[in-house]
Nucleic acid binder design. Sequence first.
DNA 1: ACTCTTTTATAATTTTTTTTAAAAGTATTC
DNA 2: GAATACTTTTAAAAAAAATTATAAAAGAGT
Lengths: 408, 408
Amino acid sequence: MRPQFLYEKNLQGVANSVKRKQEQYRKIVRHLYYNGAASIAEIVKAVKISQPLVASLVDDLMSYGMLLDKGVGESIGGRRPNLFCLNSEYQYVIGVDINLHTLNLAVFDLSNKQIFREEIKYFDLENSEDYLNSLVDKIESMISQLGISREKFLAVGISIPGLVDAKQGLSHTHLSVAENGLARVLGDRLGINVLLDNDARTMALGEKAFGKAIDKENVLCLNLSNGIGLGMILNGELHSGKNGFAGEFGHILIDPEGKLCYCGKIGCLETLTSGKILVKNIREAVDKGQPTLLANYKKENKKIDLRAVVEAILQGDQFAIDQLNQMCEYLGKGLVTLIHLLNPEMVIIGGKIAHAGKFVIDPVTMSMNKYAMSRISSETELVCSDLLDDSALMGTMANVMRSVLSLD
Amino acid sequence: MRPQFLYEKNLQGVANSVKRKQEQYRKIVRHLYYNGAASIAEIVKAVKISQPLVASLVDDLMSYGMLLDKGVGESIGGRRPNLFCLNSEYQYVIGVDINLHTLNLAVFDLSNKQIFREEIKYFDLENSEDYLNSLVDKIESMISQLGISREKFLAVGISIPGLVDAKQGLSHTHLSVAENGLARVLGDRLGINVLLDNDARTMALGEKAFGKAIDKENVLCLNLSNGIGLGMILNGELHSGKNGFAGEFGHILIDPEGKLCYCGKIGCLETLTSGKILVKNIREAVDKGQPTLLANYKKENKKIDLRAVVEAILQGDQFAIDQLNQMCEYLGKGLVTLIHLLNPEMVIIGGKIAHAGKFVIDPVTMSMNKYAMSRISSETELVCSDLLDDSALMGTMANVMRSVLSLD
DNA sequence: ACTCTTTTATAATTTTTTTTAAAAGTATTC
DNA sequence: GAATACTTTTAAAAAAAATTATAAAAGAGT
């Protein structure tokens, strides 16, 4: 059986019995992917198929090379079970995390291990055929470098900033040169299925699958870097809205008397809270002679960017901390709106600013305490991501597997 | 077979085959409830069960009296099909719409027809054993008046304002005298299962099942009366949040320099936009001698309440329209936040103010045009409910049937 | 009148489950 | 420390359930 069989849903002109069998296989693979090695008995309970049938399905999957016999496990008071697990080398997933200035690539095996990882700096995102070509080249060279045959790749998962319509595979903000839709164009060129989504949403999927949102049903994931992104897990599912435009948290109104935003509106959250603003404010202060660790950067002709600011904060730089605190007051205000509307159980802060840890969490918490109805907000936990810079990349893997193994 | 069989999910200590059969029955009943009369062939396509099996399941349901043979239908080029439909008198649902000052009661049959309907005015909601008793009395007398045996009632659906945890059957804001949870207490007293939810969410369910949200996946329903409620359909499902506190739209921040809200925060949307404020402002103006149709009300010693204001607006009262327009500007601001965050395909305005029709829609639309990013908001349709005062009551029916017929 | 459809009923076959039994342990008792 | 009782896991046989295939019925269109 071809590896791709998992991917082929909604098969047409195929007997019903074939579809049903596929679904049964998928249930088993799904369970093993999400829960690790299991005995026949455990699978039976999880997938609600009878034991003789599960045994024969597992046999089939073993004969295809998709499952491996891991030998006997621990007994819980009777005969010791035979454990089975996914053959992690049976298939692979390519993860592509597109950022404004860098590109992260990875290849995952079915145990979610990154068997290849590359960070390409100074890979500036631009809407050109050239960018598209070199993106394809990078992926192709990764594939040939690994020497894994193309059929072994289940899909390519892509994370990209801006407005994305995942259902249609369209990226509206970036790479609109791909006229038939980015997913389609890349898929055709690579000969591998491509799955696309917005960076904040992809991060949310990463957190749900591998981070702090595991087993949570209503979680908001903030991507705090130069802008503000929001990915939402609601009722256990990623929320994308009608056109995939959901999550424009950066452009909600916070200060009606505030500054003009680049989006044309006044007082958007992003005019008050964003990495870009933070850096800008600090640069201006440094120019005016503000004493701060970051002033040394300038002397040494190093660039004061967001990474540098976060570093300074972690080193205890008083001025930078103050600036962040101010920002967090506004961010808290915005978050309160989200919490009042959606009553999530957890808010996860990710992106570059998440590296600041308690230096973000504490002031945001204070702001929330001030502005939120405590009955509602007290049910919401505020934490920093522990996947950090990896969350989008891990999210691409999560997105692919979620799509492939979904049961609908 | 007892009518209640549909309701009994997660049966324990029962053979798997029995559960599966129940699920098959439920699929068929579900299809007939949501789509009306159908032939065996149509059911086969919809529920994905083979034709011989569907035929025998339908036979069973007929013999239980749950289904009726509607005779032959139109041919589409071959033998004319035999149509089957739900026996609408096989079971009934009680709907209870609790408002601050009135109580709406109804009994629905399985064709969603209100076979009984009563509006009880001056039935002020208060947190007392007395209220609970007279609520039960009203329901009991309705039941005995109809002469339908208790077993025929599938469930009681209740809509109530305030914070509600539907999963647990708890009403936090009102009727907390019911110590074991309102749903439980009423259920025990009535001897019928009780389903509880917040009024705005219940309205959203009503709109999704019977109103303008049919076939839509992402819809926001506003309950604009004395306060502001919000019910959200996201990814086709009602969103309640972790504790059922989602939808506190009235308490999102709109004006940081604004007035103190009764919730303790400053500048909440409800301090700027709500029926209560509208009425208050108009009353004050009337006292100061403002020329308006509503001034006559005062002369005639009639009360200036929200209903009167809406009436005046519909009669073209310039001052009242102006006041509403002002309110709508703020409401639009708030809605923009929602639309940016959730990218819904439709926003439905319900509640007493929805009676004003275009007098709300137009100014809110204008405000949205001003404050929203048009790429996102242009995908969102803004309409008034056509269920109007019935939406919560219809929603209780929808809630019960959704719960009973869900396939999980 | 004939062919072509669609719907329904019946028979045959396949699939799946339940039942039963065997295998391989653990815990306990004497 | 072996024998026994009790578990859990797996395998095989028997029974049940569900589907596919086939045929018949009932009508539409030409």
